[in-house]
């Protein structure tokens, strides 16, 4: 089992494609940081216009904590693509390359192969999020310094003291790992269906985009189905930056994501176990 995982990780991290994701995360982060360095004041004034009329807020508003939040907010929607790049490729890519054929003539149970593919994708996801934490949070702190964090919600202005922020980020990143793992498991299922990796990657992105739109539409019809969409729960990490933290809601969101993940994974194992390898 360990050997199988070792091989899976070896394959993932020997491929140039794997590092594209890390490059993309770094690049987007840099761009946002650069934009904030040059035009951050204007952004803050715009964002704070509602509060600024009555309160005079001074100090390092545009600090690393806020920048990291802004980066996460805009980047986490796109991370599924990067996760799909590996998870969507996991089975379909091997089918396409023909290596699945050889792999399955080795004495390995198919469910183990699926579990290893999932674990490999999970570890990749964790590393991607850790890398995101490094560039989005720690690099931002280095560039913009520390400070109290403000979080602008549509109905509230939340301020978090600077020595009260780090643990929230730790939990938020942990939650992001969970959300992205759900994506990985979905991508893996799509990957089992396909014989080339482009399909699952695009399908993953399409599903995420469509469901995210549904999750954000304020229409009565969608309000009913909203709680059942995993995309609704993927942004629960933001809850950790609220006051008070809605632990109950976050917990429920986490549960929904875990159920989805297990469901996707079970479906993958079930389907892959009876799949004819014809490629």
């Amino acid at each position: 089992m360990i050997q199988l995982l070792h091989i899976e990780l070896f394959k993932i991290f020997k491929r140039p494609r794997t590092y594209i994701s890390f490059g993309i995360v770094t690049a987007i982060t840099f761009v946002i940081q650069l934009a904030m360095l040059t035009d951050g004041k204007g952004f803050v004034n715009f964002a704070l216009s509602g509060v600024n009329e009555q309160f005079d807020i001074q100090g390092n508003i545009l600090n690393g904590y806020l920048i990291a939040y802004i980066i996460l907010q805009s980047l986490l929607i796109h991370i599924p693509l990067l996760v799909a790049l590996v998870a969507g490729d996991a089975l379909a890519g091997e089918a396409n390359a023909g290596t699945l054929r050889l792999l399955l003539t080795k004495p390995i149970a198919r469910y183990k192969l699926v579990l290893m593919k999932f674990t490999g994708a999970f570890i990749y996801t964790v590393l991607l999020i850790v890398w995101l934490a490094v560039v989005a949070l720690f690099l931002s702190l280095l560039l913009f310094g520390k400070g109290d964090m403000i979080n602008l919600k549509s109905e509230a202005f939340v301020m978090i003291l600077q020595d009260d922020v780090m643990w929230r980020y730790a939990l938020a990143f942990a939650f992001a790992v969970l959300a992205m793992t759900t994506i990985a498991s979905m991508s893996l299922l799509l990957s089992a269906f396909a014989d080339n990796s482009i399909g699952p990657i695009i399908a993953t992105m399409g599903i995420v985009v469509v469901l995210t739109i549904l999750s954000n539409l304020e229409l009565p019809l969608f309000t009913i189905i909203k709680p059942y969409l995993f995309t609704t729960h993927m942004i629960a990490w933001k809850g950790f930056f609220d006051a008070p933290i809605p632990y109950y809601a976050i917990g429920r969101s986490a549960l929904v994501l875990v159920i989805y993940t297990i469901g996707f994974l079970a479906a993958t194992v079930w389907y892959f176990n009876k799949k004819d390898i014809k490629s």
Binding site: G50, N216, K238, G239
Partner: peptide
């Protein structure tokens, strides 16, 4: 005080 929801993309904890 109110920001448009699209700008903030709130997590609606309900």
């Amino acid at each position: 005080y109110k920001l448009p929801k699209g700008v903030t993309m709130d997590y609606n904890d309900e």
